[in-house]
Design a protein around this nucleic acid. Structure first.
Lengths: 196, 196
DNA sequence: TTTTGTTGATTGATCCGTCAATAAAAAATA
DNA sequence: TATTTTTTATTGACGGATCAATCAACAAAA
């Protein structure tokens, strides 16, 4: 009994199912059938709405990125000082929504896939640039631009590295210690210079 | 015209071909036929020597890890002071042999695959522990154990993060700047305390 | 004649993407 | 309002391609 206006609901369900499937398998090696099954529909319907598997994966990555971006903007709005802006960006990266086995597995898998898909690669570059820019929005209020740039790069690398190690379930048992580690770095780097 | 004593040669050739194939594709999604073809043999022979694809991939990862370990031990032997030991470990991670698109792509792909294969996961844990321990071998001569532990963890995360960013070909254009970034972190962390 | 090296051909399984068919809602027409 | 037509939702079944793994067979060395 087909009800109308199903498209947006199905799309959402399929994207959620894709994240769940990738998270469980730990790789993009999930079949359309499994994703569709998880979303409670047939694989034919998944093809109907997304055309090809690539496009479903792409839409999923874009969804994750959009989510992260929304969280970040929300957090930045609450930050009063430059220093707080930096911490806000870090905190979001390790928030309960983001720093989760499921999501991290998806991130990792997409990083790998990006080497074959220029569209995905472009998307991940957007993420990298956005992260850098968000960090800079706080750091430039504390450090001279050149130094701020270097600290932003190091912080970004630290975050990515902690993500990977989390995926391995080795070290970095929880978000708390990950944040502490990054904040410790920032503290030593920003020590003293609090305002221009 | 089969000559005797081919086994070790074939094994080596197949492992090298596997690295090359993974490096080019950027993922473990390489066929046995492609690997075998690259090594100049039939896919049947690859199965003959390695049994299954899993085992070939596993052997390849082990080979990469062994190579990295050998390089590290060599570098550590040349380090005179504790501080130099730390730098040696960092330098090896970004040496020409290791910090290469091919090898990095393989690393990344294996990280993903590790989430499905407990054998691979165990292997990567060995790498993580070894890296930590190698860093500690220098750091404990400079910092109290607890602090050394934290710095080692951050340094390891930094290294992994820089690897990922290199794979994306975004930021970290060369090994030089990557080393500089890590060394800058170490310098600020170890500043002052040079000997116990 | 036994061991070692090697491959072409084949099998069996998996999986993406397509298509024809069905059914209900909405729109158009009478 | 009653009807026909179009649009939207949905799926089972299938074609076709890819690939891992096996096997029988052959050749050269021991």
């Amino acid at each position: 009994m087909p009800k109308i206006g199903m498209e947006p609901l199905r799309r959402k369900a399929l994207i959620d199912a894709t994240i769940a499937a990738i998270g469980e398998r730990g790789s993009l090696d999930v079949t359309m059938s499994e994703i569709a099954g998880r979303a409670g529909v047939s694989s034919a319907l998944a093809h109907h709405y997304f055309g090809a598997k690539d496009e479903l994966l792409f839409a999923t990555m874009r969804h994750i990125l959009a989510e992260l971006n929304a969280d970040t903007r929300r957090a930045l709005r609450l930050a009063a000082t430059a220093r707080q802006r930096v911490s806000a960006v870090v905190a979001v990266s390790f928030s309960d929504d983001q720093f989760q086995a499921e999501t991290i597995a998806a991130w990792l898998a997409f990083y790998v896939e990006a080497q074959q898909s220029s569209a995905l690669r472009r998307l991940l570059r957007v993420y990298a640039r956005r992260l850098h820019s968000n960090l800079m929005s706080g750091l430039t209020g504390i450090l001279p631009r050149v130094e701020a740039d270097r600290v932003a790069e190091a912080t970004a690398a630290l975050i990515d590295g902690l993500y990977i190690r989390r995926a391995l379930k080795d070290g970095v048992p929880n978000a708390q210690s990950a944040i502490a580690l990054v904040e410790d770095y920032l503290e030593t780097k920003l020590n003293g210079r609090s305002l221009p």
